[in-house]
Amino acid sequence: MSGEYGALAAKARAIYGRRLTAADFSALIRKSSVAEVMSYLKGTPRFSSEFASVNELTARRAQIESLLERSLFEIYGRLLRSAGGGDDGFPKFMFFKYELDVIVNVSLYILIDKQESVIAYLPFYMEDLLGFELAPLGKIKTASELPAAFADTDYADILVEHFGGNKTPKVDLFLRDMNARYVDKMTELAAEDISGDAKNEVIGLIKAQAEIDNLLLIYRLRSLFKEPSTEILPLLLPIRAKLPKGVAQSAANEHDADAKVLALLKKYYFKDKIVCDLNNIEVSARKYMRDRCARLLHMSEDGAAVMYALMRLLDIEKHNVITVVESVKYALPVTETEKMLVN
């Protein structure tokens, strides 16, 4: 089926060709204000049309993030339309991502009693693509209303499990179940709809991301928050890619878990290709995914796989731009910002 999307590959590569370059980021991090950053971005081929109407003098970080998100949505929509739209194959992978994002964000706002933030957040521009209506979400007041609001989604049972009845919701476990479902769904979709080497690579990417997320979670909770392993192990996604069975879990039990995580990442993922230490572990993880996605984008003949790689790469670019905006806003030294960029 994915062969039908072969024509997408060229278009996706062309879009990636317009990405911000290392020289662009080098210039951006040397800007002295967010307005200058926006002004520069408006002059790039990548964002010239997207940001044309933005008033750089009044642009705020949240607005920029929203615009970047909207930009990705527009690109995705264009690619999907050129692939014929209406199909339920793998190219619709972003629907699950958008659904996941909306459900998680709305749930979190409700759980912390920020109903007004739900309204501000609701992305009406993508309403037509989602499996539920957005307007009723702005009227939700309590967590117990959430299962009904998302009853028609693939995540309904998880919402019932965590928010149904009078149980006190455990946010961490809710997020773990949501992410695990998302990874399962994506893996299933790729297995059904993509063939050949591209299938293995896409599934490998999805699982590798989940496994790396597990390792980074261990690193964060043990190294930064000094959490005991008993608190960490239940939060790990039940997914394994390259690591032998139980290795990630045993790393969480180690006294020097952070060093163990670093060693595992180096051994199974970064090898000698990505230089990494404990100070840049998360950036290195993104670099690793960037390299794999870029390879998939350039090497694969499967349109859906290339489209997936593109969206991942553009997401990394979005992350870079937000990093630049925040760094400029808080006047971080250029050398520090450079370390946080993946380019």
Binding site: S49, A52, S53, L67, R70, S71, E74
Partner: peptide, 9 residues
């Protein structure tokens, strides 16, 4: 209404 590329203001 100003028809813009990304957002219709």
């Amino acid at each position: 209404t100003e028809k813009e590329r990304l957002a219709d203001y």
